[in-house]
Amino acid sequence: MAVVSAQQVTGERSAGGFWAWLMAPERRGPLLVTPALLVLFVMNIFPLLWSFGLSFFNYRANRQTVPTFEGLQFYQRVLTDENVWERFQTTAIIVGSSVLVQLIVGFLLALMFARSFPLRRILLMLVLTPMMLSFVSVGVFFKLYYEPTFGLVSWALNHFMDERFVLLATPAGAIAGIVFADAWMWSPFVMLLVLAGLVSVPKYLYEAAEIDRASWWRRFSTITFPYIKSLLLLAVLFRTIETFKLFDIVYIITEGGPGSATETIAVYVYRQAFQFFRTSQSAALAYIILFVVIVLTNLYLYAVQRREQEVT
């Protein structure tokens, strides 16, 4: 690397003054971190504190009335509301099944791409494309594919079924439709993670296994799986946290219906805040979501650290 001459250090600037104080070595860390923390504070942490305040006051974004202090009333209302628990259950079902599908599909895709073959780069791009589409377009076009009369999926399935295929009319069907679209979009992401794990397995282990004539299953369970185990965990947590936010696809494909069968917690908060203008109540609910997310984030960090320990 570059060897630097000593003359540049000596005689740079004289001591004293605000500038020198600011640039002192012991302030280097804080100084470099400040811009990032400042932006995060203004755009994330301050709004969070604001909504924390809102959750104690009776406030409606569309009215001019002076907010009144209500204490913990909104938290109580949210926590005892059966609708909220129902939405959490719906979210859990959608997140659980979607992440499971993503894991299986992503894993199989990764196994396919974990070797070098002609045209690999181009074929990999084809699989990665769904991730680059916007939620809006995935939502609109999957809704079209499911559409009973003009839909591609319905048209194909009608050949095998006696009655007309109407996916989104039943709660189970609507959930399946959303899970299918979301899993299709994000399985490539899981694939990328698993692929990175598969690629990190040292080749000499496989060579040794070959000399020992280890079976396919044994090679997988004793060499491959240990190397991708924690990455799989990482994928599960990351996708769980991300799917937990699922809003756009649901809103476009089913609008939460039929009834409230597919109304996820994110859609519910959006409705409360921007359709019914129950600002305080949605702020209280948002805080309960935040709590869940912090728990998940802790689990995520735990997985990351375990991965680091295993690799080094």
Binding site: P30, V33, I45, W50, I294
Partner: peptide, 29 residues
């Protein structure tokens, strides 16, 4: 810094947070 990991954790949490949590105050802001 002092409390390095705490800062890193707070930073990560802001990413994991569903946007819906901050959308109302950001909208007002």
């Amino acid at each position: 810094l002092r409390g390095n990991d705490t800062y890193l954790f707070i930073i990560l949490t802001t990413r994991m947070m569903p946007p819906i949590v901050v959308i109302i105050p950001i909208f007002l802001m």
